[in-house]
Design a binder for these strands. Sequence first.
DNA 1: ACAATAGTGTCTGTTAGACACTATGCC
DNA 2: GGCATAGTGTCTAACAGACACTATTGT
Lengths: 226, 226
Amino acid sequence: MTNPVICTVDVVLLTLQNGALHVALLKRDKEPFADTYALPGGYIHAQEDKDARDAAVRVLRDKTGIRSPYLEQLATFSGVARDPRGWSVSICYYALVSEEVFSIARLSTVKLMAVDDLKTYLPFDHREMIESAVERLRSKSTYSSLPVYLCGAEFTLPRLQAVYEAVLGEPINKVSFRRKMDELGIIEPIEGAFEQGVPNRPAQLYQLKKGFKNVLSLTERGLNTG
Amino acid sequence: MTNPVICTVDVVLLTLQNGALHVALLKRDKEPFADTYALPGGYIHAQEDKDARDAAVRVLRDKTGIRSPYLEQLATFSGVARDPRGWSVSICYYALVSEEVFSIARLSTVKLMAVDDLKTYLPFDHREMIESAVERLRSKSTYSSLPVYLCGAEFTLPRLQAVYEAVLGEPINKVSFRRKMDELGIIEPIEGAFEQGVPNRPAQLYQLKKGFKNVLSLTERGLNTG
DNA sequence: ACAATAGTGTCTGTTAGACACTATGCC
DNA sequence: GGCATAGTGTCTAACAGACACTATTGT
């Protein structure tokens, strides 16, 4: 039996800018929907990719120059109606990067849009993908350490708390937040390293514990690690 | 660009038997892995199925005769190595049915296996799929009302608690359990209806509230509803 | 010394589990 | 009345948020 199904991957690349969640969009250079902004995505290359995750990594690298430390399968979108070329399957991933990583990448072609105010028209079911990714991120942020990937490699606790607050869209109690971070046990202070150049008491710098550097990014479908 | 990727769906159908979680397996009638037990699955029929969920519903109906009230996308398994026929994608769903629904269905071809003691050899990555489904179910059971789908349409609170305990594998406090069920607010007592034929005080019968009958089963990727 | 933010000790209200009691069926 | 299980009232221990206080930098 032949199988005329189109197989693609799409990546919802999220980052923080000015304290608000943003998604990376690229102007499509091919039909359908040429010249409209859309999620980075592309066909699975059966000769080249070991699996769909590989394809997502490749697409992200080739189209944005970014190698994300966190990449998790979100869901698969499929059907006859979502793509004018015909019955298609898109395995959708979402990735989290810090603002700095983003500014280093080739930004010329990439456009950042605030996810809570997505005015642009989006082709396919890309709007639904973004909404799902944001919902997943918000949900996981209430009980896990996911948002650390939106910070750089080193960060202070007040900065991390601000990131959580930006993601969740509500203020968090300082004492509770620090207690939670402590008992999650996945970050550690960098001995003797403090914030620089602030006009007040400098905060302790923290980093992901060694063992967790790539643990989370290795959970293919994000089923384990809390 | 041609796309030689094989597109299939697989369904992890879970039920309770003798107080233990079981998964439904069928003997494969075609190669590869003919005559070995495997998850019900099959090709996406682009002419027939509106989307992958449709395909999962069809496969489940055709192969087991069951129309599950709960069906949620689990994850997508893909790659060059998982199927000897070549690069493949399987969009995996999981379904929950009550023991009774199961006994009505055509059981002759279907084999129930306890998920915590899966001795059988399983082809493809079906073992991983089952483990993921069980993990998802256990995880969601700690904060949602998912396990009601493992009961029939009418059930008592002691029965529902036993179902939760079977799924989670640990005893639950009776008072806390009833408080939680009450505040989840998705089940309601059937006025005047009680358990029959017990040698002690009969328990109140409950049912899913009207509005929730199919709400959960409509969440395509299980992203919303807690 | 003062302003500003980092970081901590403690109090209190909320919530989950333990326990004990009452309720209601069958024999 | 006795037994078994359903169902509820209440006490207590654990936890999360509020608040206030101390600590440490630059000016």
